[in-house]
Design a binder for these strands. Structure first.
Length: 430
RNA sequence: GGAGGGGUACCCAAGCGGCCAACGGGGGCAGACUGUAAAUCUGCUGGCUUUUGCCUUCGUAGGUUCGAAUCCUACCCCCUCCA
C-alpha cells in the first residue's frame, strides 16, 4: 500500500525539533506502512495538554497510512523518568500506576483509530515485557551494551548530578536502560523503527537506537517534538491553578476552551500549526486576519474550538461556546433567560444553597462557590471592586443577598475579576 | 562510618531572643488601561473577626525563658567532601 508523504509536513508545521537522520526517516516512511511508536508513562489518571502533540503526531502518521503504537509505561512509571526533572521523584504506588494505565488507555481512543486492522493503532503496556525479565538476563543482555561513559554523558544525568541540592538514585539512573529496552523490544516484535517523543526524550530515544544497533544490527530512527511553551515562558497547559487535563472531570470543557481562547497572540499561530488539522496555508490566512483585528481573537477561537471539539466532542463544545459568548459579550443580565442559566450551570462552577429567611452573606457565597479561597480574601476583593453579582459591581463588604435579588427567585451569577464566574442556585425547598 | 553545610510561607531568599504573620525578588490574584490580550502603573498575597484583636505557621518532638523562626536536646530529611 502507498503512504502519503508526511515528514515534510511535520517539518513545515514546526513539529520536528530533532531527528536522528532525516533522509533515513523519509526513506523508511516512503517504503511502506511503518510502525511509529510513542511512549507515555501513566503517572496520573488523565492525559493533559502536554500529551496532545505526541498523540496528534501519531494521528498524523496514521492518517498518512502508518501504524501508531502507544506504549504505556506500566513498568517505567514505577521507576520515574529523570529526564527534564530537577530532583528525585516520589515513587508511585503500583496500584496508582495500574489505575492510571487503564484510564489513559481509554482516553487514547479519542485520538487514534484502534480498529483491529493493519492500520489500527496498538496500545501496549511495557510491564508485559519488562516484568518477566530477570535481573541477571537484564544486566547481561541489556546493561552490557551501555558504556558508563555514555550514560554519564547524557544530558538528563549531567544536569541532575551537576545541580546543587538535587541528586540521582540508581533507580532513576536505570530508567534509560528500560526505555531503550522498550524500543529494542518493539523493533523485534513489531518491526518498529521510528520513535517519536518530546524534546526531553532525545537521550532515551537515542539510547534505544544504540541498543537496537548493537543487539539486532538494525538501523532505527527517532525524532523529537518541540517543547510547547508559551510567551509567558511556561509549558503549555501548566498554570498556577494547575494542569489543563483532557479529562472533563478534572478540567471542565469550559475551562479547557477558555484556556485556549486566552492564548497569547504571539503563540496562537505556532499552536495552530502544531495542533490544528488545517493546512498551513489556511493557518497563514487565519494569522493574517488575526493580525488585522486581534481583538476578535479569530485565531484563538479557531484553536479553542477545534481542540475542544477533538477532546470533548463538538456537541459539548457548542454548549461551551454559547456559555462563553453569554458571559463575555457584554449583554445585560436581564437578557438571559432561565434556559441560558441551565446551560451555564453545566459549564461553570457553582453551588446550590438552601433558602433562608435572612438571606445570604455574599462573602459566604463567594467561598462556597470556590470563586475565592477565604472570607478574608472575599472581603478584600469586594473592597477592591473585583466582585460582581448579576453583572453589577458590589461595593459593600457586608452585602447580604435576599431572595428578591436572585434572578427568577433562584439564580445568582457571581463574578470575580474579569473572567471568573460561578453560579448560585437556591434550593427549591424552604 | 567520619567531617562540614542546610531545611523559613506557592518558589527563591533574608531574619539569628521581643519592633516577626516574618525584609526583598519571582509567581499568583485584583484594580486602572485594554481585546476575556501584551506592556505599564497601583494594591493584595496564612485563617477567623469588618479592623480591635484572636488563632495557626519558620523540618519534627520536647526544653530554657516573662517572651523563640531565632538559644538548648533528641530525632527526621537533603546536599558536599572523605572512607
Amino acid at each position: 500500500m502507498s503512504c502519503l508523504p508526511i515528514f515534510g509536513e511535520l517539518v513545515e508545521r514546526g513539529c520536528v525539533f530533532q531527528a536522528t537522520d532525516e533522509a533515513g526517516i523519509e526513506a523508511l516512511l516512503a517504503s511502506g506502512a511503518a510502525p511509529v511508536y510513542v511512549g507515555i508513562d501513566p503517572t496520573a489518571e488523565s492525559l493533559h495538554l502536554g500529551h496532545l502533540l505526541p498523540l496528534l503526531t501519531l494521528r498524523r502518521f496514521q492518517r498518512a497510512g502508518h501504524r501508531p503504537i502507544v506504549v504505556l509505561g506500566g513498568a517505567t512509571a514505577l521507576i520515574g523518568d529523570p529526564s527534564g526533572k530537577f530532583s528525585e521523584r516520589v515513587m508511585l504506588a503500583p496500584e496508582t500506576v495500574e489505575e492510571a494505565t487503564e484510564s489513559i488507555r481509554r482516553q487514547i481512543g479519542r485520538f487514534l483509530d484502534l480498529a483491529p486492522d493493519p492500520w489500527g493503532a496498538r496500545i501496549l503496556n511495557n510491564r508485559d515485557w519488562i516484568h518477566p525479565l530477570g535481573v541477571i538476563p537484564f544486566l547481561r543482555d541489556v546493561g552490557k551494551h551501555f558504556p558508563m561513559g555514555a550514560m554519564l554523558g547524557k544530558e538528563s544525568v549531567r544536569t541532575r548530578l551537576g545541580t546543587e541540592g538535587s541528586g540521582l538514585s540508581f533507580t532513576e539512573f536505570s530508567y534509560l536502560l528500560l526505555q531503550a529496552y522498550d524500543y529494542d523490544h518493539l523493533c523485534q516484535s513489531e518491526g518498529c523503527r521510528l520513535q517519536v517523543g518530546g524534546s526531553d526524550q532525545w537521550g532515551n530515544i537515542t539510547a534505544g537506537i544504540d541498543l537496537i544497533r548493537r543487539r539486532q544490527g538494525l538501523e532505527a530512527y527517532g525524532l523529537t517534538l518541540p517543547l510547547v511553551t508559551t510567551a509567558a515562558g511556561t509549558k503549555l497547559g501548566k498554570t498556577e491553578a494547575g494542569t489543563v487535563w483532557l479529562d472533563a472531570q478534572r478540567t471542565s470543557p469550559y475551562a479547557f476552551y477558555q484556556y485556549l481562547l486566552q492564548i497569547d497572540d504571539r503563540d496562537v499561530g505556532r499552536l495552530l500549526r502544531y495542533f490544528s488539522e488545517r493546512e498551513c496555508a489556511a493557518i497563514r490566512a487565519l494569522e493574517e486576519a488575526h493580525a488585522l483585528e486581534p481583538e476578535k481573537r479569530t485565531a484563538q477561537k479557531a484553536l479553542a474550538y477545534e481542540l475542544t471539539a477533538l477532546v470533548h466532542g463538538s456537541r459539548e463544545t457548542d454548549r461551551v461556546m454559547r456559555v462563553s459568548e453569554t458571559l463575555f459579550d457584554g449583554r445585560s443580565i436581564s437578557d438571559l433567560d432561565s434556559e441560558s442559566f441551565r446551560l451555564l450551570e453545566s459549564a461553570i462552577p457553582g453551588t446550590v444553597v438552601p433558602a433562608t429567611p435572612e438571606g445570604w452573606q455574599l462573602v459566604d457565597l463567594l467561598v462556597a462557590t470556590g470563586l475565592v479561597s477565604s472570607k478574608s480574601r472575599a472581603r478584600s476583593d469586594i473592597q477592591a471592586g473585583a466582585i460582581s453579582v448579576n453583572q453589577l459591581r458590589v461595593d459593600a463588604v457586608g452585602k447580604r443577598l435576599a431572595r428578591d435579588e436572585f434572578l427568577w427567585g433562584r439564580y445568582l451569577l457571581l463574578r470575580h475579576g474579569r473572567r471568573h464566574y460561578a453560579w448560585v442556585r437556591l434550593d427549591r425547598e424552604g
